[in-house]
Every structure is written in C-alpha cells, then in structure tokens.
Design a protein around this nucleic acid. Sequence first.
DNA 1: TATGAATGAGGTTTCATTCAT
DNA 2: CATGAATGAAACCTCATTCAT
Lengths: 220, 220, 220, 220
Amino acid sequence: MVSRRKSGSGSSGRTNDPERTRANILAVASEHFAEHGLSGGRIDDIATQTNTSKRMIYYYFGSKEGLYEAVLERAYLEIRRVELEIDIPNMDPTDALRQIVHFTVDHQYSHPWFGRLVAIENIHHGEYLKRIPGIREHNATIIQQLETLIAKGVEQGQFRTGIDPLSLHWMISAFAIFNVVNDYTFSYLFPTPGTPQEVQAQRRALATEAVLRWCSVQAA
Amino acid sequence: MVSRRKSGSGSSGRTNDPERTRANILAVASEHFAEHGLSGGRIDDIATQTNTSKRMIYYYFGSKEGLYEAVLERAYLEIRRVELEIDIPNMDPTDALRQIVHFTVDHQYSHPWFGRLVAIENIHHGEYLKRIPGIREHNATIIQQLETLIAKGVEQGQFRTGIDPLSLHWMISAFAIFNVVNDYTFSYLFPTPGTPQEVQAQRRALATEAVLRWCSVQAA
Amino acid sequence: MVSRRKSGSGSSGRTNDPERTRANILAVASEHFAEHGLSGGRIDDIATQTNTSKRMIYYYFGSKEGLYEAVLERAYLEIRRVELEIDIPNMDPTDALRQIVHFTVDHQYSHPWFGRLVAIENIHHGEYLKRIPGIREHNATIIQQLETLIAKGVEQGQFRTGIDPLSLHWMISAFAIFNVVNDYTFSYLFPTPGTPQEVQAQRRALATEAVLRWCSVQAA
Amino acid sequence: MVSRRKSGSGSSGRTNDPERTRANILAVASEHFAEHGLSGGRIDDIATQTNTSKRMIYYYFGSKEGLYEAVLERAYLEIRRVELEIDIPNMDPTDALRQIVHFTVDHQYSHPWFGRLVAIENIHHGEYLKRIPGIREHNATIIQQLETLIAKGVEQGQFRTGIDPLSLHWMISAFAIFNVVNDYTFSYLFPTPGTPQEVQAQRRALATEAVLRWCSVQAA
DNA sequence: TATGAATGAGGTTTCATTCAT
DNA sequence: CATGAATGAAACCTCATTCAT
C-alpha cells in the first residue's frame, strides 16, 4: 500500500527513512485525532494504522500531546499554504472575493479534518496552538492578502469603504468552518431537502452572496 | 442537610428531593462536559462537585454516556426556550430580525457552554443527539418563527423574495456559534484590537449587518 | 494466611476495612522498597504480595512516589517510637548510655529495612523526607533525651563536659546504620572470622566502648 | 576532532583512541550511577553526556550491569590507591592514626561519589562487587597497613593492646562513609548550626577523637 | 436513597537493547 | 569504530463502573 524503499538491501518491514516514518505517523495521527479528539484519541490505535510501532511515536513526538501539537501545526501550515494558491492580483476584485469564499467553503468541505481539528483545539482552549512557535506569523499572510483585495475593490468602486479585513476573514471562516464542523447536529435537527451535493452547493451560494452583499457599495 | 418536604407522591419518610438531586447533577455535569468534552470529562470530578455521590449518577443516568445525553437534551431544550422569548409578531420585520441576530449572538456569548456542547456533540458525529426522542420536533419551532417573519418582511417590502428560513437560521447560527466556540484559536491567530467587550460588539454588528443585507430587497 | 474479617456476611476476598487494606499495602511496600529501592521497586510486585490489587495502591497513595513517601514516614515514626522505650531517667548515666548504644545497634541489626530505607532515601538526596510534614519535630525528641542524659552524666562526674548531644546521636547512628547497610561490601572485602552472631556481638561491643570512651571524663 | 597518534599496535588508519573512549564512558557513568543508582541510572543519559554513542557502551561493556560493574571496580581501585599515599612508617603512631582518620573523612567528603556508589552497591547486596576478580586481594593492603601501625603504637606505649585492625578500619569507614552518604537525611532531621565547612570540621574532629580515644592506653 | 471502598480493563510512557548503514 | 533509527517487553497510571454496608 505504501510504496517505498529505493535503497535496495534488506527486506524486513524496516524503513530507516526517518522523514517518511515521521510523516507517516503524522498523517495517520491527523486523521485519528480529527476523528476522535485529543482525549478520545488512542495512541495504540494510531500505532496500529502506522507502518511503525507505538514506540516510534514516542521517539519522534515525545508524548500524546506532543503528537497532537505536531498534528495541529501541520494542519495550520497546510491550510494557509492552500489558501495562498488563489491568484488574487490578476483578477477582478468581486470575482476574486467570490472565488475565495467559494474555494474556502468547498475546500473545508472536502477536507473536513482541518475544521474538526480546529474545533477540537478550541475545546482545549487553544492551549496547544499557543505552544507552536511562529504559527501566528505564518497565518498573518491571509489578512494581508484580503487587505490588498479590499483596497483594490474599493479603488475600483466595487466595495464599500470601511471593510475590516479581519472581519471579512472572520465571516468567511465562520461560514466555512461551521458548515463542516457543526453539520452533524444542524442537518439532523433541521433537515434540508436535496442530496448532500445540492445542500453543499446551496450553502456555498449562501455564503458567497452574504459576503459579497456585505462588501458591496449598496447601502444596508 | 437540605430539609425539604416530600414531593407529592411517596411517603417513606425520606427527606431528600430526587428532583433536586437530579437537577444538581445535571447542572454540574453540563458545565463539566462543556469544559472538558465527553471523552475528557471525568465522572469522579463531576461527582465531587455534586451534592451527592458517584453512585447517584449511575442511579439516575445509568452511565457516563447516559449523563451526557441528558445534559445534551437539557441544553437544547433550554436554548429553544430562550429563543422563543422574543416577541416577534408585534414588531417591524427588520427590527425583529435585527433583534433576533443581536440577541442570539449575545446570548451564545454569555452562555458559552451551550455552543461548546454543540461542538463537542459534533465531534461525536451527533450520535447522542439522535438518541434523544422528540428533540427534532422541539427544535422545529424556530424555523416556523423565522418563516412567519420572512413572510411579513416580504409582504411589507422590506425583505427580498426567495429567502429560505432554514438558510437564515443556518447563517445566524454560524455567526453566533463560531463566535463563541472558535474564538480561542481565531483571536489568538488574528488578534483584534480593543477590549473583549468592544470586539464582541463589533462581531455582533458585523453579524447583524450581514444578515440584514442578505435579506434586504436591494440587488446583490 | 492473613486472618481477618469479624464482620461475618460475604465470603469473597473483599475486606472493606480501609485501615487494614492501607496498613497491609504499607507493610508489603516497606519491605519491597527496602529490598529494591525506589527506582528498583515494582508496583506490580508489591500489588501481588498484597491482599488487594494494584489499583488500590493508587487509590490510597496516588503514585509510586506517594507510596514510597508513606513508607518513609511510617519508618521514621516507628524508629523513634522504639527509641523512646528505653527508660533513661531511672538509670545510672553510664549504664543508660551503654544500653542506648547496645539497643540501637541491635535493633537496627534485627530490623535492617529501616537502615536500608534511610540509605535509599539518601541516594535520592532526602527529597521525599522533606515532603513529610512534621517529621522533623517528631525526631527532635531523641536529641532532648540525650541532652538530659549528658547533663546527668556530667553532674555525676561520669561524663566530660562539652559533649554535644547532636554529635553523640550522629556517632551512635553512624555505627548502627553503617553496621547494617554497608555490611554486604564490608564483610565481603574484609571478612571477619566467627559466626554472624559473634561478629555482631563484636561490633556492638566496639560501638559501645567507642561511645563510652568518647564521653568519659578521661582526657584524650 | 581529537588528533592523536595511533596507540602502538594496530595500523588500520583509524584516528580515535579506544582507551580514551572507554575512560570517557567510565568517568561519565561513574558520576551518573553515583547520582542516580543502578536502577535509577539511564543508559540514554549516560550516552548523551559521553563523547560517543550508546552503541559504544554496549561495545565496550556489554550491558548496563557490565558498565556498572566496571564503574564499581574503578571506584574501589581508586580509593585504595589514594589511601596508600599516606606515608605511615615514618610518623609517630598517634600522629599517623590522626592523619589517617582526618584524611579519610575529608577525602570521602570531597569525593562523595565513592561513598554513594558503595551505598548503592549495598542496596544490591554487594552482588556486583563479588563478580570483580581480585578486588578482595587489592583491598587487603589497608588492613596490613593498620596492623603495622597498631603494632608500632603498642610498642611505643601509645596504643592499648588488643586492637583489632579490622575493627579499626570498620570504625573509620563508618564515620567517613556515614558522614557523606547519610547526611541528606541526618542534616535535615537534626540541623547543626554553622556553615557546611564548620560542620564538616566538627565531624572530622569528632571522628578523630573517638578513634584516638578508642585506641589509647587509658582504661575505659 | 446514599457512601466510600474496590475492581479490571485498558491507557500512556519508559527502558535496555539491537539493527542498518 | 561509530551513529541514529527501531524494537518489544514491561513499567506506571487512569477510568468507568460495581459492591458491601
């Protein structure tokens, strides 16, 4: 299943590729913690799904919490990396904003483990996030990107003045994350007709329109 | 210790009030589970904070999961009860909607344990909510309320046509819940200047305006 | 093997006598830690030799270190209790001192676990002893006792002046403890002819005479 | 890094010095075991403080116990080597004895790791010492030395007859070792006024006087 | 109805040791 | 000679739950 080993000597299950071992553990642990939470997560279960043993988890990450912290860091680095892929500068501001919302809502939907990890981390009061050095700076870029976009939109007469980029990001995040994380209870209590794809399309449209209307020049 | 007359039925000479015991356990457990989650919650800790003993928890609720389920039920009943207190019929539709958003965002903010329980339940895929009989029906009323409000607003030319009450509720919930539950990580990664009260006021205004703009007749 | 249970109802292995359970664990643990040290001690092994389970050790003592600390406290309380049994006041000072040394050396010899625990605790820099509240005060009585004895001996012209009770206690302790704790290596490297009993008698005599000579009025 | 010519025999072009590596490991391990005991000692920690790796420890010493045994042997060889440095033959017997006690007590005090290792080995019933071939013979010299001294002292009318050299060594050892090893608990339970240096001077004087009085011709 | 003691299963972590290079 | 990755056994500790009174 995991294709590996170019270095052709032995043939036991041994890898001796530390980067790969670490990455493998991290990938398995990400899914596991996203599924069960930190308290509900089981080191034994993670180890079983790994190419290596429980011992190696402690070798690389020191403790259950250390592993969780590494998972969290990886998740936030990944999500910002993905966000930066949208090429805003060369687009019409309204189109760019529409695309950002569209993309964010869809991406979170198809990668629900990130949103779940965020929710889990918030259950723990964000204390593990705070232990990750440099994570704040890394995430600051998205705000700058939105700031640039807003300025351009205002300049071109498409967006109203006074839009706070932090608030804009908050709004988009609220839609994208809530849509993924809280849907188990919401869709149970308030069932929406249609296939899951249709419901998702509707939510995406709703989020997009709400954001655009909030930014547009028209008076409230 | 707690002297009380026996509640109606029995007469075996016991002095304690079962209802009160049950309610006390439930109150303590609500806070505890909201704070630590289901997997992270500890029966021992709950028992310690209670007026009674661990044995009583099992007597009344059968198991840790049973207790959690009861906590969840209590929470959802409570939140809908509160929501119904707004007297919509006699208000201008726009004012009523503004007030609903305002109130919801503020109420969740000042009672964060509800939002946290919802987040926790979603980590568990909503499986415990589904076990509560009648919870769906109980929650349906809020949708009807919004439906009435939308109709009135459309009739009076304040709201655009085609507003889905489910979507409206989703939008309000997203703002109100996200604002409470995910704020540990969000405010750490994206610090907003101002006192907590000021930030909360800003968020409330943002949510209110976004919802009103989304409902208003003006074209997008 | 352990005769128990007056309260005659059930017949399982259950005791439900907390004092007895605690005492039983403590007794087993004392021997075990004295034999293997703190790091070398095994909670599993202690539990096996107990009437109860490993779980109860944690129920009563919280941790391995907590158990060890309790063992230490018990040991020091016991040793001082034993020391106070000598009725010094009504004896001739020289006889009393001779008896104290004699008794201390013999008692340590026949209860080697105390000396071993002291040695073990010193390997750990005495850090656990310092956590026991009131242990210092409890041990102070032996010094007062010696002080009284010295005063009486000086008064009767048997002891020289200027004897420090702390030094006297130090000297007696050095003989009594060293004799027990370090005898594995000493008797191997420097074998003394005679049966163990004879060797012990010789050591006791040596200690007694050294102490008496140190206290006597004759000039050095 | 450590440029050294190859030691005599081999000529394979390697630069490192096996003797130096071995000695380095031994030095680090001595301090470590003296500090933490055998069970409490950690191979990983020792390896980290070494110039080399964990693999080398196993290469040179076979196992943790093998390393500990080597440490023990080194310690006993060292201590006897030091003891023999006192030039007894050319001194007045009383002065020589005084100096031996003085020196022994002081040397143990300033090299506490030896006493601690002895205590640790006794916790393990001296079983590792017994595995060291020739260690007994090596230590016998100190007894012969004392025997000579006693004979000379008796001959010159300074010491009483019937002094057993083994007992004399036992007495000196008891003072010197107890003073170092058990001082954590003793000085905590029975605090002595004065600076550490003053206390040590007092203990040294006490030991010296006790030994001299025990050996002197004066009747008990 | 109420309480503190007891339990077994399972969780996290540690450690001496060995292997591949 | 030397290194860092890997390992399995066993250690410490926790938790929901039940029993005796």
